[in-house]
């Protein structure tokens, strides 16, 4: 198990280093001067030059890369060009919104998808299966921002049960914070749940066709027991894979939902930073997201090993 972990971690580290080079290089070739952008069309050339100097943009490329990496290694992500506050503070402010949102959405989606998948698989080919999978098909097809707008109009404009968007901050209390995240989480979770339930169902059906299931059934084990104890556990590998991918998506890919609900999350921070060419913020957030995706993948790999003991030895 230790060798397995060591191998996974070293692969992750190499991925991180490669990612840092790619991220830095891509942002470097992006046209646009952050200083000019901040000072606008009427700025004099000398004012722009002074600002570039203050931002450290007059330094050569390699020097800037080295100082950026050096900073990252000591936990210093640098200072935002536009906000002029430490990048790590900006990320922390946004992560307290994005992380709970992703976790709530993931919990919702799992809580819906696994039972639905089991239900449909157990009734394969029957009306109940057709109806739930039909609904899931619609769930996969519906764009989440459109679904979000429907939620806003029903629950915020018409029923006035929740705010139409925005985030009051955790200092306003735990419940107001969760209340603000509820609708965005539903909007994120349902399409994900639709995908996950279809994956769960098909993985289960595959397992249910295996010989050992027939054996278990033949020796008189109750249906329910077979489904939960034998089938579900063996169907978990593809489900875990999808869950890992979905969590990574929920962390980084929620920009559209964040815009619709005007939530101050990581997605919007990156988007804003890109349009303002606040390169150091983009670099910092992207590196953090890369790291968290790598971490999620390692956790998923460990889960594989826990679910399927055979994978532990070949690692």
């Amino acid at each position: 198990m230790i060798a397995f972990l060591a191998k996974r971690l070293s692969v992750g580290l190499v991925t991180l280093i490669v990612a840092s080079v790619v991220v830095f290089a891509v942002l470097e070739v992006l046209p646009g001067d952050p200083a000019q952008l901040m000072l606008g069309m009427n700025a004099t050339d000398e004012a722009v030059a002074t600002l570039r100097e203050q931002m450290g943009l007059d330094q050569p490329l390699l020097v800037r890369y080295a100082s950026w990496i050096g900073g990252l290694l000591t936990g210093d992500f640098g200072r935002s060009f536009t906000y002029s506050s430490p990048v790590l503070d900006l990320i922390a402010e946004r992560a307290v919104v994005s992380l709970p949102l992703a976790l709530i959405a993931l919990a919702m989606s799992t809580a819906i998808a696994i039972p639905v998948g089991l239900f449909a698989a157990a009734r394969r080919g029957k009306a109940a299966d057709t109806v739930t999978m039909g609904a899931a098909q619609i769930g996969v097809a519906v764009p989440n921002f459109w679904f979000a707008l429907i939620l806003i109009y029903v629950f915020a404009v018409w029923l006035r049960l929740v705010p139409s968007g925005g985030f009051p901050g955790w200092e306003a209390g735990v419940w107001p914070g969760i209340k603000a995240l509820l609708m965005p989480a539903v909007a994120l979770a349902l399409p994900q749940a639709a995908i996950l339930s279809r994956v769960t169902r098909s993985a289960l059906l595959e397992v249910l066709g295996e010989d050992y299931i027939r054996t278990a059934r033949a020796k008189g084990m109750p249906r329910r027991h077979v489904l939960w104890r034998h089938a579900l556990r063996n169907a978990m590998i593809p489900v875990l894979t999808i869950l890992g991918l979905q969590f990574a998506f929920l962390l980084a890919g929620t920009i559209i939902i964040e815009n619709v609900f005007y939530l101050p999350g990581l997605g919007r921070l990156v988007f804003q930073a890109i349009t303002q060419r606040d390169l150091i913020v983009v670099e910092g957030v992207v590196m953090l997201l890369v790291a968290s995706v790598i971490l999620v993948n390692i956790v998923v790999d460990i889960c594989y090993a826990l679910v399927d003991p055979r994978l532990r030895s070949n690692a």
Binding site: L149, Y153, S164, G165, R268
Partner: peptide, 18 residues
Amino acid sequence: FRIIPDAAAAVPALLSGD
């Protein structure tokens, strides 16, 4: 001053009284 970057979000924010 509440920052609402998306046009689609501005209309419900007004209609709901937020």
